Simulated scan of single mutants.
Amino acid sequence: MNINELYKKLKQLNDIEKYTYDLYNTRITSEVDIRLKEHFSNKVKNDLWIINNEKLMNESEVIAIHKHDRFIKFDKHKHDYLEMMFVYSGKINQVIEGGKIVIEKGEILLLDMNVEHSIEAAGFDDIAINVLIKKEFFDWIFMSQIADNDLISNFIVEAIYGKNKFKQYIHFKTSENDKVCNFMIQILMEYYDKKNGMETAIRAYMMLLFNELLRDYKKYLTSEMVSKIDSTISTEILNYINKNYKVITLKSMADHFSYNPDYIGKLVKKIIGKTLTELVKEKKIKQSEYLLHNTKMSVIDVITEVGYSNVSYFYRQFKDQVGVTPDEYRKK
């Protein structure tokens, strides 16, 4: 497939577009609206429309590509996957969390799973591509490549395990970046050609695409939003440590957040400035200080209560952090 063949492919009407073409710029009936929601969702609820990856992706797929359906308005909805929209031609008008956004030709919009948005009906020349990304795509190999970039790695982590606390998106205004456009065109040609090695090639181009986006990321997000993302992730991590400090390991925390241990270790150090070992030690010693000061528990019982099994090691750790031994601390 070449660029001209790709253009013709994308301009063609798919089944949904053929069905809705005559209704473009007219009021869509409630019956059509319900059919649309049933096509994209497992459950249709008027107050909350969630587009399901099961409707759009095979179980084995971690990345899927779908041309955005033209001539129809998408009411307010969320996704259960990360979505990246690339505007191939024309423009796409969206309302995201109450604010109007226009994504122009060559630009990219990255949405997390928590964001509510609606999309105005696209015209014949308004062609956009939706890249659907499951969290499995961001395995430790991929994350290791972007872990040094605060914005994207934190965005992805918070999108996946942020418990809907912070809704975020990034609008990459890359219309003048030829590399971004070329990478997306290569991804699309691989996807539509269906040749051997397609999945490997798409992953490689996605890596290059994200690498290019990272280079100028500061243009696309305010310092306030970056700070909010960092703060929310820090809170999630510290809350988990405070609840599980007696038995926590890097592996157990990685399992909880569905990430590779090496990556979550880097994330903790980057966001909080200390290693998991340092944070757990501080929590255990702080808790032992509290127990020594406020209870009549023996030192041995305190040691056991906070999760230590080696008495002499605890004494060394306590004196290193507090400056005195546990016995001396209690006598103060």
Rank of each mutant, 00 (worst) to 15 (best):
V299Y: 02
E38T: 07
F314I: 04
L292R: 02
L250P: 00
E305N: 14
A254W: 07
H66P: 00
F155G: 05
K266L: 14
R203D: 12
L213D: 02
K9Q: 11
I108Y: 08
G99Q: 14
I152N: 00
F74I: 07
I72T: 14
R203T: 06
V322C: 01
L82I: 14
M225S: 02
E61C: 02
I50H: 06
M198I: 09
H117L: 10
D69Y: 09
F40Y: 15
M207F: 10
K45M: 13
N130W: 01
L279K: 00
G265D: 11
N4Q: 12
T277F: 08
S312E: 10
K243G: 04
D139K: 03
S309Y: 11
T200A: 13
K195A: 14
I133P: 06
D150C: 00
A128M: 08
A204N: 14
K332M: 11
L238A: 00
D148G: 05
V268P: 03
E104D: 15
K163A: 13
M57G: 05
D69P: 03
D125M: 08
S231M: 06
K43T: 15
I101F: 07
K163L: 13
N242T: 00
V324P: 01
M207D: 04
K100M: 07
I16M: 09
I72H: 08
I202M: 04
L48P: 00
N130L: 12
N25A: 10
E5P: 00
S30C: 07
T200G: 11
L151I: 15
Y169L: 03
F40I: 14
N294M: 05
V324I: 13
Y240K: 04
M85C: 07
V44K: 03
Y263F: 15
Y21P: 00
H68I: 14
T232D: 08
Y7N: 14
F257T: 02
F74S: 06
D327N: 12
I51R: 11
L279C: 01
Y290A: 01
N2Q: 02
S175H: 10
A121Y: 09
F155I: 04
L292K: 00
N294F: 12
I101Q: 07
K251M: 02
N42P: 03
M184I: 15
L250V: 07
I72D: 08
F124T: 10
K195N: 15
Y19D: 12
A159Y: 01
R330G: 02
K45I: 12
G273L: 02
Y217Q: 08
K246A: 04
E97Y: 04
M206H: 05
F40L: 15
E31A: 13
V268N: 04
I127R: 04
N244T: 13
V299Q: 05
L110S: 05
S298C: 06
L151M: 08
D125V: 02
H256Q: 09
R203G: 01
R70L: 11
E176H: 12
I3A: 08
K194D: 13
S144D: 15
E199L: 11
V87P: 03
I96D: 02
E17F: 13
V95F: 00
M1H: 06
Q145E: 14
Q321T: 05
Y220K: 03
V32G: 04
